[in-house]
Amino acid sequence: MSINTDMAVQVAAIIQVAEKVKRFRLVRVDGLPLPVFSGGAHIVVSMLDGDLLRRNPYSLMSSPTDQTAYEISVLQVEKSRGGSAFLHEKLNVGDKLTISQPLNLFPCDVRGRKHIFMAGGIGITPFMAMMDQMTRESSNFELHYAMRDRKHGAYWQELQQRYAAHRVKIYFDVEKLFIPTDAILANQPLGTHLYVCGPSGMIDGVLNKATALGWPKQNLHSERFLAPLPGDIFKAELKRSKKTITVGTHQSILEAVEAAGIDAPYLCRGGACGQCETSVLGCEGIIEHNDIFLEPEDKASGKTIMICVSRVKGQAITLDL
């Protein structure tokens, strides 16, 4: 980014909270208070893994008004591109990282009469900050939280204790307990907002049901962080920077651009915000659009690409960058 507002932080604690889930507590190196954020916000964590710079977005899950530390929870994923593996296996207490300012692409609509949160697995994290905020604002909310099983599920005991079982409902796949989405969505007072965070399939399923039950899009909110998908190696010619770079199998165009020392705009790094949209000046191959930001017409036009998650199947692409 052109204005650097990044903050240097240090890992103050690492806690294993469930099978494959660790919580990281980050404090500022300079000892200053961290900015207050709003529930649903995320930060981009920059980590130096050897000589490789990784930047991943993580939802903030600590209390939005706690300025002493930020907390994130990270799931160790099987086919990790490295971010989660690095945090789980290599990061130690006392290590330094760089984080961005908090940014909220998943805010609560405070005008809502009632708020329903639906979380799948690690998708619980933004809701933890939201529920903290809503409790302080005395807003009416309930959480429906689906997990694989009791061992892999994070925080459900604490959440039920803190907010009571009638507001925190839990479901475990292995016990054949599933969120009764239809029944929930069919019986909400007008003015209710729905928020979904979890695996893509779950988000699509819930949003489609809500739409079919007549929920207007203004009341539907979701967040998914898409990790850039791997693919074939290709070349990217950056017209304005007069450089041609190679995008590796496990690299996004944005990461390759940054590795070449060029500053490109981004916010979410997950194909959701639209900030990294770049004009395509030419393409030898097919653009694989992996984002959820562009409209189908834009994708079909081949004139624009979200460089944080999308790539090219073919030889090369020329970008206005």
Partner: peptide, 10 residues
């Protein structure tokens, strides 16, 4: 009417 209405009402 609005107080008693459910989501799905336009």
């Amino acid at each position: 009417n609005l107080i008693n209405a459910k989501m799905g009402t336009r």
